[in-house]
């Protein structure tokens, strides 16, 4: 089997993603993404910029929302709510992970 060397990109808050790239990666149209921004479910790094960019971790959130939209046949309102809740869940999971990391282990 042929081994291939690949280019890589972290999908986290340390990298940025243009709206065109987010369209390509999520399968959502630019109009749909703009609607989600209007609903407040999604926020570009700077709404004043002519070309919107998003934090890299938004890609994962939007991909999850698209999967739920397609698999559960959600409408735009339900999708916006889903997106907001996914973000909230991820924030809470990160907080739990951080608190767990601070819990001491029993001494040997």
């Amino acid at each position: 089997m042929k081994l291939e060397q690949a280019d890589e990109m972290w999908l986290d808050a340390h990298c940025e993603c243009s709206i065109a790239e987010l369209v390509r990666l999520s399968g959502m149209s630019e109009a749909e993404l703009r609607e989600l921004v209007d609903y407040g479910a999604l926020a570009p790094i700077s709404a004043q910029d002519a070309e919107w960019t998003f934090s890299g971790d938004v890609v994962l959130t939007v991909q999850a929302a698209v999967r739920l939209r397609d698999d559960l046949e959600l409408d735009a309102q339900a999708l916006a709510l889903t997106l907001t809740l996914i973000k909230r869940i991820r924030e809470l999971e990160a907080q739990i992970g951080n608190l767990r990391a601070q819990l001491p282990r029993p001494m040997p």
Partner: peptide, 9 residues
Amino acid sequence: GQRLRLRGK
């Protein structure tokens, strides 16, 4: 928990 994207792979 981090995600790495390998473009075109």
